[in-house]
Design a protein around this nucleic acid. Structure first.
Lengths: 242, 242
DNA sequence: ATAAATAGTGTCATTATGACAATTAACGCT
DNA sequence: AGCGTTAATTGTCATAATGACACTATTTAT
């Protein structure tokens, strides 16, 4: 039998296949808090529970699983090009009452200022991490959320990832606040600035942020910006794993 | 409708689900070369091509995707408890001619000396990384192999992962050779030993390796061994990404 | 005994971060 | 204009970890 003949006679439905979904932890910062987008499930199972946005791969419209993730993100936030990273895939017989299921977990980092909109309604909320982890989330989404947060925290110790949560321009103090917010502990101002400057990831815009005190220089991503730039040393904080 | 009623009437087969497989890059070292296990495909598609070992999740026997990975590893190597890590999931419409498919990519690190057997036959070979990447591997397995190798190399710069490729006891020089083999560049003996010693991951067995020259102290994993121990600094090598 | 080879150590330089003080620039107030 | 307050920015030294490289130690072969 040739491969062409084999494929002609192949029926993918004869084997049991797991349910396959993409779930996303979409992070943003608002009012000095790290928040995650939650959707209230409109249908069974887990109807009425808060959940991470997600859904099935649409085989006829999504070319890749990343496309599915981008589509989900766009449907919920209107955002096209966020920082998007695959965290891990979790699959087992018990996580979804409909049957053996696998989810591809992503996280996205977005920023309200460049986007403008942050939908909030009866069925959509931006919950702070602590709030979200206190909820009874749908399925195993609490586990998923923990994995996403832990990944974000871990990478914040040795990469420049949190820059992707910032608006187009920002001050170094604002950026440091973002790092501290994610890590949950304060950083040394001087060390932080040295790191950032040595990385060459940012450049001054020339403008200043007008505040009630001494104005701060505004920075933006430079030509050679890469969000997961790896610093030569780890930031010395003890992470609380959630 | 209650959730129970919903589930009763739910048919997972009405939606098109992607094919879902687990593929593994199983690494081991032999004769000073980093090798990966390849299987010659017995069936269509890609019949006759070399491929990474893998296969479908067996929903009735595997409780989790990690169980599938462990099962595949055991089937091919007889090994039960290797270092096993999920690398990434790759899914798209074109990687498998049978249709939209997702693979969950893992890599495993094993060591021949503790295991004993390294199957090699007409249908099974341990190929050096360079050989394997020169082959026309089945499906997108060349891409998968690259991803697995790059992950291994990257983590070797800041973790103790390669210890999992070593036999139960080994000398520090042998361990350094392993690191150098993976990284593709030489390391400073002193720096390397300092790092390892400071980590507390290893302890001396008290025995010595008898060689034709000065004997070397044998080490083994200590109580507090953890394969992905993170060192405070990056090894300073420029990685060639494959 | 001596050379060769590999194991293991000593030492200083370099790089990066931690700690913390000092300086600078703006604002509001008197 | 001068002063206090606040936040931005820089200076300086200590500490930690790696890089470079030389030196010592131990074994075998000759």
């Amino acid at each position: 039998m040739t491969e062409a003949e084999f494929l002609k006679s192949y029926n993918p439905k004869v084997f049991d296949a797991p349910l396959c979904t993409v779930d996303m932890a979409i992070f943003a910062v608002e009012e000095g808090e790290l928040k995650v987008l939650l959707i209230k499930r409109a249908e069974h199972p887990s109807k009425g529970r808060w959940a991470l946005p997600g859904g099935f791969c649409d085989l006829s419209n999504d070319a890749t699983i990343d496309a599915t993730a981008h589509r989900k993100l766009f449907e919920k936030t209107g955002i096209n090009s966020p920082y998007l990273e695959q965290v891990e895939s979790i699959g087992n017989a018990v996580r979804d009452p409909r049957g053996w299921s696998i989810t591809l977990l992503y996280f996205a980092l977005i920023d309200f200022e460049t986007i403008g909109a942050h939908p909030q309604s009866e069925h959509t909320q931006w919950a702070s991490i602590n709030e979200a982890l206190k909820c009874e989330l749908a399925f195993d989404h609490k586990v998923l959320l923990r994995k996403a947060i832990n990944r974000l925290r871990k990478k914040t110790r040795y990469t420049a990832l949190p820059i992707s949560l910032m608006p187009r321009t920002f001050t170094l103090t604002e950026l440091q606040n973002m790092f501290e917010l994610i890590l949950g502990s304060p950083l040394q101002k001087k060390s932080f600035r040295r790191r950032i400057e040595a990385s060459g990831l940012l450049e001054e815009t020339g403008d200043m942020r007008a505040t009630s005190r001494r104005p701060a220089a505004l920075f933006k991503r430079s030509k050679n910006f890469e969000e997961d730039h790896i610093f030569p040393g780890l930031l010395d904080v003890k992470l609380e794993q959630v």
